[in-house]
């Protein structure tokens, strides 16, 4: 079983909601990223999304665009992030880690080589926001061949009749985009977000996570009975930036958030 699926099963058993965080890899540097991952595991974060910076992040708002740009300027690339993955796995980090990245990075690396490297270095899942269901075949084939990382499916408030098709063979969890557009539009969820989340929950055989625009556990109070967890990205990046990537600040925020989900 994949680490993400194991974690989801465990959370279900404990009747806990998941906290999933996002951070751009390579900030403040790769050692800092590794330290932050360890701190978050200690603070009770359930899954980490590690952003592989790309030059043209069209699904991201200004905060993550800026973080990606700075990380690229510092020399971050996917090869170095794989290296860091290997190191933290050797150092005993066991929480599920997902690469959040754009498709061109995978294409450029080579799809099969990429899938093999994910397995080798302990990457458990991929989120590729510019790779909709219809374009996934090649990548899915390579991932299945390896039996390592799984591809996380995204649905949006306007996915409608596409939802059952997308979720048919989906694994891990469903990433429900809660607002239209890009990441980081704090608190402005789609007007029909509750109805939409309920619909996804009804169809989905796997846990349903909500992301885009979440800052505090309070933001998701109205949907708490529907969803299985929350994804915090932009706000977490802002917080890290404000606290100069302090592991203590990250720990504090994550453990408070996790407590707030109870």
């Amino acid at each position: 079983m994949n680490r993400i699926e194991e974690k989801m099963a465990l959370l279900k058993e404990k009747k806990e909601k998941a906290l999933i965080t996002y951070m751009t890899a390579g900030l403040p540097d790769m050692e800092g990223t590794k330290a932050l991952i360890k701190a978050q595991e200690e603070a009770g974060v359930d899954v980490i999304e590690l952003g592989i910076p790309f030059s043209d992040p069209i699904a991201d708002g200004p905060v993550i665009q800026d973080a990606s740009y700075r990380s690229i300027c510092l020399g971050t690339n996917v090869t170095k992030v794989f290296q860091a993955m290997q190191e933290i796995r050797e150092e005993g980090v066991n929480l599920p880690i997902i690469f959040m990245m754009y498709y061109n990075t995978i294409l450029h690396y080579g799809i099969e080589a990429f899938a093999a490297k994910c397995k080798e270095t302990g990457v458990d899942g991929l989120i590729v926001p510019d790779l909709p269901f219809e374009e996934q075949e090649e990548l899915q084939d390579a991932l299945k061949e390896q039996e390592g990382a799984i591809l996380i499916q995204l649905v949006s408030p306007v996915s409608k009749e596409r939802i059952p098709v997308i979720l048919e063979d989906a694994r891990g969890f469903v990433y429900c985009v809660s607002a239209m557009g890009v990441t980081g539009q704090a608190g402005t969820f789609h007007k029909e977000v509750t109805a939409y989340l309920s619909e996804v929950k009804q169809i989905s055989k796997i846990p349903v996570m909500m992301g885009f625009g979440i800052r505090t556990p309070k933001d998701i109070t109205p949907m708490k009975d529907i969803i299985d967890g929350a994804i915090v990205g932009t706000h977490f990046m802002q917080l890290l930036e404000e606290h100069h990537y302090s592991v203590d600040a990250a720990k504090q925020y994550c453990s408070d958030f996790k407590a707030g989900l109870k």
Binding site: I58, A59, Y103, P129, D130, L131, P132, F133, E134, E135, L154, V155, S156, P157, V158, S159, K160, R162, I166, V177, M180, G181
Partner: peptide, 21 residues
């Protein structure tokens, strides 16, 4: 039918734009 010219083209966009397209 999927909007390819040989191996080129396609729809590499966010899920939220697929119905729009």
């Amino acid at each position: 039918s999927k909007g390819y010219y040989g191996k080129f083209g396609g729809q590499f966009v966010a899920e939220s734009l697929m119905n729009t397209l």
